[in-house]
Design a protein around this nucleic acid. Sequence first.
RNA 1: UCCUCAGUAGCUCAAUGGUAGAGCAUUCGGCUGUUAACCGAAGGGUUGUAGGUUCGAGUCCUACCUGAGGAGCCA
Length: 439
Amino acid sequence: MTASSAPRVRIAEARAHIGQTVEIAGWLYNLRKSGKIVFPIVRDGSGIIQCVGAKADLGDEPFESLKRLTQESSLIVRGVLRADERAVGGVELDVHGFSIVQRVSEEAPYPITPKEHGIEFLMDHRHLWLRSLRQHAVLRVRHEVIRAVRDYFDSNGFTLVDTPVFTPAACEGTTTLFEVDYFDDEKAYLTQSGQLYNEATAMAFGKVYCFGPTFRAEKSKTRRHLTEFWMVEPEMAYATLDDVKQVAEEMVVFVVRRVLENRRADLAVLERDVARLEAVLPPFPKISYDEAVAILQSKGSTIEWGGDLGGGDETILSEMYDRPVMVDRYPSAVKAFYMQPDPERPEVALGVDVLAPEGYGEIIGGGQRVHDLALLEQRIAAHELPREAFEWYLDLRRYGTVPHGGFGMGIERCVSWICGLEHVRETIAFPRMLYRLRP
RNA sequence: UCCUCAGUAGCUCAAUGGUAGAGCAUUCGGCUGUUAACCGAAGGGUUGUAGGUUCGAGUCCUACCUGAGGAGCCA
């Protein structure tokens, strides 16, 4: 759509075109008026810009039309870009002409006004809420996190090998799965982890990662849970727990640095204290589960050795440090069947969780996998898992088995921490949660 | 599944058991530098639903519905 021969410019690039006549295609974000002058604020997806329209320049009829334009009406404005310290972005556009693409009816005005709204209302209007500055900032940080994660693995010898979403059985047996009909009388389940398949591709490619949606039918109703979320899962052949910890640390440091480099303006919109992110440097503090339990007990937690860390326990630990903390060697009994026992202490597993600071808690879970055939068969039996379903997985231990390991990072939890949000629901365009499937 | 809290105008909220209100949004009027602009006026309500207590219920009681926060479980 063209309103004139003036070049189309995105607001994010407006500074480079000061003094030129340009056109901007977007939507009316807000409009202030003062008699014979109006200040339409236009957004185009890349930013917002204050425009200035004077009655004397536009003529009576166009001026009145612009003055009465409703919020979120789509329009194309053309005029001259001018540096002006009074404007929010430092650049203003003097409107010489405009065309309205669609005028939003005043009988049914845009529901999200530039005022406060409750979370229920905003979630019900998520499809429109995405237009707001704050949501833009969060989702741009998400984009940067995903790009950084991919760049990290792509430039460190990992091959992207994505794993299936439809799976025949549970990866871990314990958590709840979404069940779907798979043709004739067969049931399939939506994946809750690509890890088992990652172990197969790691034996084929050495270092791999998968990145995709993950589904958990747990009836969790907290600020850190979604039923559909995105997870990146690297897996490495010939890797030990220490290798896993090192890669996790490097990746987190890399991701945070990239967000600080490229998305500072968005962090400013979110009023994120960037000093907290600048502190995310190696080495991360590393403690054992034993030490974690002792620390928690000394701080009043009721945790006993042998139990898993509760949400409150994670919060206590993550608030103790200025950077993510790694907790390793959990009791084998509370961990998945594929976790490699510590050869020196079989009662603990060679697993590690990474807890983000400021109370955000677990963003990464991983560790070293059982690579011995007999031990894996024994663990499958002990967990009462259907052996037949794991024959292909056991094959990986029959044909050139090696120590290996990896981890999974929840993208939304990571973005929530980096953005300093109260809840993971804002870190994905259309969150799926217990009791929320729409829009 | 369990525990706690909430539901009043389009939105955010107020209203000792006694006439249902304000700000924003919308409409009309005013203003040539506004920054969630401002000033004046107007319209806008089956107080989540169904019962109950009471002379009288937005307010008290019961059930249900919806949502939020948390627990368990997890990334």
